[in-house]
Simulated scan of single mutants.
Amino acid sequence: MSENSAASGLGPRPLISVVVPCFNEEEVLPATYERLTAVMSRLAGCDHELVLVDDGSTDRTWEVLRELAADDPRVHLVRFSRNFGHQCGLLAGLREAAGDAVVMIDADLQDPPEVIPELVERWRQGWPVVSARRTRRQGESWSKRGSAYVFYRVLDVLADQPVARDTGDFRLLDRCVVDLVATLPERRLFLRGQISWAGFPETTVECVRRPRPAGRSKYGIRRQLGLAHQALMSCSDFPARLPVLAAAVVLGVAVAGPVTGRRAPRGAWALGVQLLCLGVLADYVFQEYDQTRGRPAYLVRQSVPGRSAARAARTGAPARSTSSRVAAGPMNPDDQAAAS
């Protein structure tokens, strides 16, 4: 257990929260629940809870989740008003989790839950961040494997702070890390980058990414490109420097032109640089506008609180029967200050 957790005077049975974002996963959820509970129940000396976030599903995902919560007091549910995206689902789970450590894992079972005991063991050894590094990616096309390989290495070169290679969101965070990440005000999220930015000591364990046992991937090329774009914007100042680099290239070509006897078409280079600069600036302006207009990252339509004694002991709320609430997502710090 980390020094931060030990200093807080935790008892002999820490609570491990498992956060699982779900979007149209009705086919795989029963298997996900069974494997997670089997793994977590075998963890010696630990209590656990499952924080399942329905990210605006349009199938029977919410009904399946309600059935699980009705039978298991360790299940805590959150339902978004619409689909806000995978990263928002993880953030909501982190904010709802009551555990002394929190594991983030997708519902599709491609990241094996059986690796969680290794994550917990490293946490007990004192590591506040433990990531699962994918050594192989089974059942994925060569284009998916190749793009993932290139993405992590390009990000590693351009990122202001190192981001662990070949790691997704499957990782364990100590309570002190969760408390920090959950309060960051950014709306456009790339949690891996924000965790790396925080600078806590991090280690990895190896795992093999498996094929989906049921259902189909919801992360198409558009979502992948969107995540890669947000990763670059969140973790690197390279896009802001790009106009300067482009201008330097154009200036170099202009100076070298008379020497080499080659000239670009009149105005082509200048127009290209102008468009590039405008595009980069527009991207930054929109992200700043999106942040300052103050909308929450997500809206909660309904939640079903977990009823376990371990959760009640940490939240101060009594263990209670299943209930629901409808509420907006958390306000950003500026809104909270205004409300107070």
Results as ranks from 00 to 15, higher is better:
residue 109 L to M: 12
residue 293 R to T: 13
residue 333 P to T: 03
residue 117 P to Y: 06
residue 262 R to L: 11
residue 63 E to M: 06
residue 142 W to C: 12
residue 34 E to F: 09
residue 111 D to H: 03
residue 273 V to C: 15
residue 100 D to T: 00
residue 124 R to T: 00
residue 334 D to S: 14
residue 98 A to H: 07
residue 310 A to P: 03
residue 92 A to R: 13
residue 283 D to C: 15
residue 153 R to A: 09
residue 33 Y to R: 06
residue 275 L to P: 01
residue 339 A to V: 06
residue 295 R to G: 09
residue 180 L to T: 14
residue 215 G to C: 15
residue 276 L to R: 09
residue 161 Q to N: 12
residue 32 T to M: 03
residue 294 G to E: 01
residue 66 R to C: 13
residue 29 L to A: 10
residue 56 G to T: 13
residue 19 V to H: 02
residue 196 S to K: 05
residue 245 L to G: 05
residue 118 E to R: 10
residue 218 K to A: 15
residue 299 L to N: 12
residue 113 P to Y: 03
residue 329 G to Q: 08
residue 143 S to C: 03
residue 59 D to F: 02
residue 125 Q to C: 10
residue 307 R to A: 15
residue 169 D to K: 04
residue 193 G to H: 00
residue 178 V to C: 11
residue 68 L to T: 08
residue 31 A to R: 09
residue 24 N to T: 04
residue 300 V to M: 08
residue 2 S to W: 02
residue 291 Q to V: 05
residue 96 E to H: 02
residue 237 D to S: 12
residue 339 A to R: 12
residue 82 R to P: 04
residue 172 L to P: 07
residue 313 A to K: 12
residue 82 R to G: 01
residue 228 A to T: 02
residue 330 P to D: 09
residue 13 R to Q: 15
residue 109 L to P: 11
residue 109 L to S: 11
residue 84 F to A: 02
residue 141 S to Q: 05
residue 337 A to T: 10
residue 88 C to W: 01
residue 240 A to F: 04
residue 49 E to Y: 01
residue 87 Q to N: 05
residue 321 S to N: 07
residue 119 L to W: 02
residue 26 E to G: 03
residue 55 D to Y: 03
residue 51 V to R: 10
residue 53 V to A: 12
residue 118 E to F: 11
residue 65 L to G: 10
residue 66 R to I: 02
residue 287 Q to I: 05
residue 79 R to Y: 04
residue 269 W to F: 13
residue 208 V to C: 04
residue 298 Y to V: 11
residue 250 V to N: 03
residue 321 S to F: 08
residue 64 V to N: 01
residue 154 V to Y: 04
residue 223 R to Y: 09
residue 248 A to G: 08
residue 96 E to M: 07
residue 86 H to M: 12
residue 108 D to R: 01
residue 243 P to I: 07
residue 165 R to D: 13
residue 98 A to N: 00
residue 71 D to F: 15
residue 54 D to C: 12
residue 150 V to Q: 02
residue 156 D to P: 01
residue 336 Q to D: 00
residue 195 I to Q: 11
